[in-house]
Amino acid sequence: MAIEVNGKSYEVDEEGYLINLGEWNEDVGSFLAQQEGVAMTEQHWEVINFLRDYYNEFQIAPAVRVLTKAIGKKLGPEKGNSQYLYELFPYGPAKQACKIAGLPKPTGCV
């Protein structure tokens, strides 16, 4: 399967996750967000960038519990809670945000 953004084709798996995370850019992120029905704001991008940094550092997409804790530590307690993250990404911060961020599905995400 593939998606097309700005005339360039990107391979995705059967659930819509980007195959080659090195190909990701903000336009691809916006396209994936649109497909998920998420209207991206500065707050959304903040989480997306956090996830990408986390992946670069540890080579994994964190589980929800770990994500909320880590975000709380870095961006403040008002953002480090699942209610805030589910408001941004209704179908699950880890699952939906990871997809938009071009990362694989989080380990431990069934």
């Binding site: 550092e57 080579q59 964190p62 589980a63 770990v66």
Partner: peptide, 14 residues
């Protein structure tokens, strides 16, 4: 191959 040494560093978060 994907290296996973860095992932041991995330264990503390878990």
């Amino acid at each position: 191959m994907k290296g996973f040494e860095k992932t041991y560093g995330a264990l503390e978060d878990y």
